[in-house]
Design a protein around this nucleic acid. Sequence first.
DNA 1: TTGTAGGCGTTATCAC
DNA 2: GTGATAACGCCTACAA
Lengths: 350, 350
Amino acid sequence: MNLKEIAELAGVSTATVSRVINGSGPVSPATAERVLNIIEQQGYVPDKIAKSLRMGQTRTIGFVVPDISNPFFPEVLNGAQAVCAEHGYSIILGNTNEDVDTEAKVVRSLRVQHADGLLMILVDESGSTLRSALGARTQVSSSGRRSGLPIVFIDRYIRGFEYDSVIIDNEGGTTQATDYLLELGHTKIAMIHGPLTTTPGERRLRGYMKAMRDAGVPVRSEYVAEGDFRTRSGYEIAGRMMELADPPTAIIGGNNLMTIGIFQRLADMGVCIPDRVSLIGFDDFTLAANLTPALTVVDRPMADMGRIAAELLLSRIEGRDESATRQVILPTRLKIRDSCRRCIDCAVRS
Amino acid sequence: MNLKEIAELAGVSTATVSRVINGSGPVSPATAERVLNIIEQQGYVPDKIAKSLRMGQTRTIGFVVPDISNPFFPEVLNGAQAVCAEHGYSIILGNTNEDVDTEAKVVRSLRVQHADGLLMILVDESGSTLRSALGARTQVSSSGRRSGLPIVFIDRYIRGFEYDSVIIDNEGGTTQATDYLLELGHTKIAMIHGPLTTTPGERRLRGYMKAMRDAGVPVRSEYVAEGDFRTRSGYEIAGRMMELADPPTAIIGGNNLMTIGIFQRLADMGVCIPDRVSLIGFDDFTLAANLTPALTVVDRPMADMGRIAAELLLSRIEGRDESATRQVILPTRLKIRDSCRRCIDCAVRS
DNA sequence: TTGTAGGCGTTATCAC
DNA sequence: GTGATAACGCCTACAA
């Protein structure tokens, strides 16, 4: 069933039917009703593909994500999905498997499919694969207006691209966590951060450094180590640190997965949390409150990140927002549970 | 850059360029090379939308899921995604929010978008919304051949639809779990199952019943209750059961979320696992092994479910498989950890 | 208020 | 081997 058949059934032209459907021109009430009835009775629905071809837009947005199995991403996706659905947009999922080359491939594919916009949680923050995948013409023109495919970066900010981004106050998050540990009397505070080439890796480390410096507590290099945001690296680094002659009395995990790794390692080593080591994780997750002890974490509004990013993207796509590039920064919040305790050394000393 | 421009640049017709690209007809090596060079140098990529319109297929498959936040679904999605990507298919995500009406809406939308096939984890097992969303012509024709949109059901089997499905041995899973508890001497075994209108709800209960009957242990009605697969219902039902004058000494949770709820409630009530109650969950999840105690669970191959379903679907889409409707049943496996212990009553008695 | 006709970028059927 | 040309289903000047 297509436009033409409906038109014939109604005894009008395809133009008229199209006008009835889209309200895109004057139609007499009488014919409108006749056409509507036939559409209804035939269960006719316009073909999206044909419409896309004609209109040059697909009402489809690409969501590029490094790894759906990481519980953080579905939360963000959920928020974005809801907003997109409201506006009649579908989401095409692009999984990059944390791999830079796959990422470029995925972006290219999304472009060929004519996604109207992209929501991206990137792996490659250098932007080089992205640039190659997008082609040169996606830069800002001299007039300052963006051209090409609208994109909103989530969780990562990519230098050299004039695109919007929705991130969180990574620095503030770890500063808060570190301050809290300092208040509890800890000074031997370790930070297992993510890759410094990534925004969340670098900023979270910076927040920790800042808090330490502001408190006048020297940072010991053996207490700072770089992981790769995966469970395994948290597991391994935590082990190395606890085997130090003078191990830390508190550890901050750079993301959810690494924190889980740290937690596992401490359990395996029989190191009691929080008696011997206090632990704070970045990112809350379903079972954090049910571990023993319940984990104190830096929480952030994951679904909101998705929602806000989607809203921003749609406003760009639909031309409602022509303003300059935006960077939305959402706040984090320390959720205090039971994995931190007053430092014993400190209590003895004071 | 489109076909026509390439053709002009190469001094040939669009038909020839198309033949070069698709190998769909004879082309002299010389022109082929010339055309290929120009395509390369221009960075030309065929427009998928136009191709879809012409070909009547989109190389797109819809993945319908009740709730992406439930860790089970991303795992399945991951498996399916990988296979689809290999075959050049993209996945459009349809989130139903566990809601029957949304489900119908999502299916309709996927149909209008001309998804080539559907991978569905359904909420409505009655099939009525599905039937209405699909239209009548999706039934089996008299010749026994399916017609219409290829679909593979995951995790749920829908009566009255001649579609393939990939499910697991739900019954065997709970039978195994129950047998294990029986071996440990438990007889007061509770089962908190999911809605009986769903395959996993009904079958898992059945497996429990079977094991109890085979062991000659009577099932007490106060030990069997229906939840809704969500955390909250596990939490509430577990509370009610433990307040019984004669509470169970072991509980089986009907899915991951409800098990988490049960776990939380027992913790909140100060009921020690496994000393006072043994607990087995259906579905493994990331932190199950890191809870205290580590949770014994019935595990199932989630990514495999997605992979196999996607392979089945693609084989149907591409017409490689014309055989009768298939039902793939994957085995479960009991992962014994620390949340179960020999029944104390039993030890006293024997 | 309504209809005609062209074109979005492909592929495929014919001729040549 | 190659080239016109007609669809695919829709929207939208432009004309009437």
